[in-house]
């Protein structure tokens, strides 16, 4: 028999899904040009395929909304994974420098191979993975001290930011492309640019959810997890690879979108608890809602001008991060 708490979790997940559908429809409808919601629905159901509204929805807003959903789900899921693996509630792709690692490598690929759409995700993943492993190694050397992980992340981030700025300075063509990328934007997303990363993100999210039980055990501490028969080192590496894959792929088309991986896992934990089996899907859906909603806000606030999604998220994320620091001081993540 299901308990009240389990039913509530189910309801929350269903509610989040409905909210995502709603926000996605609004994202398709509003922007520099407002399209009636009825027309959006007609276009989605195939009743309207030839009007100019349908063209805007299909070629501009649909890939952008899909990009927002994928990026949000990726960053939030990566956040839950990294917080679990490092046992640190302040860990996220942004705070520990994973996004910067991916960004650095993406800019490197942009500089060396121009705008090769297939190399970008590969470079982004490689950059995110290298950075994650460096941070994990530093955390291991420092006996997993939470402050050390975050401080090491800040140090690695600034090192990589310096590298990115150096590339920007040396390559004037890159400056034009990189500005939006460094802020984090979904503007200009096309099916071509998002197909490979979105498929990769989808697979990584599903895999993460399938391995959620192991993430729960890691949250109990290495000693307990080992005693329960979990190959701690192997699963830690698997989760780091998954988180790097998610963050890297999202950075490859969305740029350095910050704070989703930090805020969303915390909000979800307060809503549905620490069980990764529910937390991971909830964070994935919530992350998608956040990014799509922030992107929508960026488009309508000063329409016809657009604010990149990264700016909106940082405006919301920075105060929340400070609140988190003051309230919890980076408490351990348990499951």
């Amino acid at each position: 028999m299901k308990t009240k708490r389990e039913i509530n979790k189910g309801l929350i997940l269903a509610g989040l899904l409905c909210l995502l559908v709603l926000v996605s429809i609004l994202s398709l409808a509003f922007g520099s040009v407002n399209i009636p919601v009825g027309t959006v629905v007609q276009s989605l159901t195939g009743q309207d395929t030839s009007s100019r509204w349908a063209f805007i929805i299909k070629t501009i807003r649909m890939p952008r909304t899909i990009a927002g959903i994928a990026a949000g789900a990726a960053f939030a899921t990566a956040g839950v994974l990294l917080q679990g693996v490092m046992n640190n509630s302040l860990a996220s792709p942004n705070t520990i420098g994973v996004n910067s690692g991916a960004g650095f490598f993406v800019m490197l690929s942009m500089m060396c191979f121009s705008d090769n759409l297939f190399l970008k995700p590969v470079f982004a993943f490689a950059g995110a993975l290298v950075t994650s492993l460096v941070i994990l190694g530093l955390a291991f050397l420092a006996e997993k001290s939470r402050a050390t992980i975050v401080l090491a992340g800040i140090a690695v981030s600034s090192f990589l930011s310096a590298g990115m700025n150096m590339m920007k300075t040396l390559d004037s063509d890159l400056t034009i492309n990189a500005t939006q990328f460094l802020i984090g934007t979904l503007s200009g997303s096309t099916y071509k640019s998002i197909t490979v990363p979105v498929i990769g993100i989808f697979v990584a999210v599903i895999l993460s959810c399938l391995l959620s039980k192991a993430l729960n055990l890691l949250g109990l501490g290495d000693g307990v997890a080992r005693s329960l028969g979990l190959n701690v080192d192997l699963f830690r590496i698997i989760f780091v690879i998954l988180a790097s894959c998610l963050a890297g792929l999202a950075v490859s088309f969305g740029g350095l979108i910050g704070f989703v991986g930090l805020i969303v896992p915390h909000i979800c934990r307060s809503l549905i608890g620490h069980d990764a089996r529910v937390l991971l899907p909830a964070a994935g859906i919530s992350g998608a809602i956040f990014v799509v909603a922030a992107d929508l806000l960026g488009r309508v606030l000063f329409a016809p001008f657009e604010l990149p999604v990264g700016i909106i998220l940082s405006i919301c994320g920075a105060p929340f991060f400070i609140y988190l620091l003051l309230r919890k001081g980076g408490k351990r993540v348990n499951a």
Partner: peptide
């Protein structure tokens, strides 16, 4: 590892905080 965990269980001493699960 799993075979070991079926034959010998181990409760470590130090647990920093209690988990937020039932």
């Amino acid at each position: 590892v799993r075979e070991r965990a079926r034959r010998l269980s181990f409760l470590p001493q130090f647990r920093e905080t209690a988990p937020n699960i039932s």
